[in-house]
Nucleic acid binder design. Structure first.
Lengths: 232, 232
DNA sequence: CAATGTATGTGTTTTATAACACAAATTTAA
DNA sequence: TTAAATTTGTGTTATAAAACACATACATTG
C-alpha cells in the first residue's frame, strides 16, 4: 500500500473525469482514495469476485481475461493507464465477469463505492460522463462481437493489432507496438488458437505488413493492415 | 403521431425508471414526450442515423439488427415493451450502430436529449439507474461475445431460445415462446446460416426438446435446453 | 386463382480453422 | 550450467459449419 500522495495521475491526468469535480468534491475524492501496486503477472481481481470500489489504473498495463468454454480463454479488453478497470461490474452491482491481470508492474487507485455514489449524485456532469463512457464501451463491445464472429482469422488478428496500437501506441521508432504480448495472449484476444496466431503473424511478416523480433511487433504497412482488418 | 395521453406505459409501467423522478421532474418529462407508432416490419431507425432523443418502446416488439461482413446480418438485441431502444448511441453521442425494426405493431415515446440531460443532472438516483442499466447491458454483451464465438451451433441456438424466453416469456400454455421469428431471424440471432438454424431446430424437435408448428416454438424440456446451451 | 415471390427443408460439397503431434528455441528454476 | 518447463514454430489430420443446390410449402398479389 502506497501513500495517497504517491499517485496523482488518477486526478491530474489530462483525460481524468475527476477534473469535472469541484474543489469540495475533489477533496472528498482525494481523502478517500487508496493506492496500491501490483507486480507483472499478478492478479488484480478474479472473475466471480465482487467489486468493492472503483479502480483506476494509474501506471502500467492490464489485460482483462474471461474463462471460455473448455479452457479457451478470451481477452475481452486491454487497458492502459490512465483508465478505469472493473467499473462495469461495480456499476451493475454484479460480480466481475473477467479477471484483471497486470501485464506490467502497475499502480492502482481505489475509491469505495459509497463515496463514488455520493459524487455521482452530487455532480450531474460527472454522472453524465460516466454514462458516456459506459455507452461508448457498449458500442465497442457490440462491434467486437461482430468482428470476432464474422471476420476470418487474418482479419481478426489484424484488428487486434490495430486495437493494440490504439490502446498502447508506438515506441519512439513510430512503428513498434508499445506492448509485448505472448502469442497465446494475441490468440486469446483474436479468438483463435495459439498456433493460428503464430502462423498468421508469420504470414503478415512474410508479406512485409509487419516485422517481428520475438514479442516486438513493428507495423511496416499500416494501410495494408487496416485493409486486412476491414476485408477479412 | 398520437396524442401524448395515449401512452402512459413509459412512465407508469412497474419497472419504469421515470418513477424515480419527483413530481416536478415528472411533469417536465410528461410535457416534453412525444408518442408515435410503427407497423410491423417498419424501420424505426437505421444504422448510421444520429439519435435525437430517448426512445421508449411502450407497446410491441423490436429487433436490433446490424449489418455484417458480406450480407450476414447479426441481431444484436431483441427488445420487448416497456424498455428503451437506441439509448446506447444517444448516451455515447454516436451514430446508431444497429437498425431497429418493428417485429410487431409498436408504440413508442420520444424524449429529446436536452430534456433528458436536464433530468439526469437534476436527479442523481435517476442518473445512477441509467448507469446501472448500461453496465448490465455491457455485461450481457461481453457474455454474448463469448457464447457466439465459442459455443457450437446447438449451444448457440439453445441459448438464443433461452434469450427469447427471457425477453418475451411464454404464451398462456406456459411453453410456447411469445415471439414469432423467421428461421432467418433465429439464425441471425445465433450467428449461423439459415439452413443450419432450420436443421438444428429440427434436431431439437426430433429429440423432443422443443415442438414446432411453423413459427410457433414450444419448449418441452427446459432443463435439457439449458444443458445444451451451457455445454455447447 | 393462377403466378410469382418468399420461407422452409434437406442433401452434398467445400473450406476455414481447430485439434493434434512434435521439434526447436527460449526462459525459468534447481 | 544443466535440467525442466514454457513458448514458439510448423506440418498433418479431423471436423464443424458455411456454401451451394434444389425441392417443397406457404404467402402475397395482380
Amino acid at each position: 500500500m502506497l501513500n495517497k500522495s504517491d499517485c496523482q495521475k488518477c486526478s491530474n491526468d489530462k483525460n481524468s473525469i475527476f477534473k469535472l469535480l469541484n474543489k469540495q468534491e475533489r477533496s472528498i475524492f482525494e481523502n478517500n482514495k487508496q493506492c496500491t501496486s501490483y507486480k507483472k503477472n499478478e492478479i488484480i481481481f478474479k472473475e466471480g469476485d465482487m467489486p468493492s470500489g472503483l479502480i483506476c489504473l494509474c501506471y502500467g498495463k492490464v489485460k482483462l481475461i474471461k474463462e471460455g468454454v473448455g479452457g479457451r480463454d478470451q481477452i475481452i479488453r486491454m487497458e492502459n493507464s490512465v483508465n478505469f478497470i472493473g467499473f462495469r461490474a461495480l456499476f451493475a452491482g454484479e460480480h466481475y465477469i473477467a479477471s484483471a491481470v497486470a501485464i506490467e508492474d502497475c499502480t492502482l487507485c481505489y475509491l469505495d463505492k459509497k463515496t463514488l455514489d455520493k459524487l455521482i449524485k452530487a455532480n450531474g456532469n460527472f454522472a453524465l460522463e460516466i454514462i458516456t463512457i459506459l455507452a461508448k464501451e457498449l458500442g465497442v463491445s457490440n462491434e467486437r462481437t461482430l468482428s470476432l464472429t464474422q471476420k476470418h482469422i487474418r482479419g481478426r488478428l489484424a484488428e487486434s493489432l490495430l486495437v493494440l496500437i490504439n490502446t498502447f501506441g508506438y515506441e519512439d521508432d513510430g512503428k513498434t507496438i508499445k506492448v509485448y504480448l505472448s502469442r497465446e495472449d494475441l490468440a486469446n484476444l483474436s479468438n483463435m488458437t495459439t498456433s493460428n496466431a503464430i502462423r498468421t503473424l508469420s504470414m503478415f511478416a512474410s508479406e512485409g505488413v509487419i516485422s517481428i523480433e520475438g514479442r516486438r511487433l513493428s507495423v511496416e504497412k499500416f494501410e495494408t493492415l487496416k485493409n486486412i482488418s476491414s476485408l477479412g
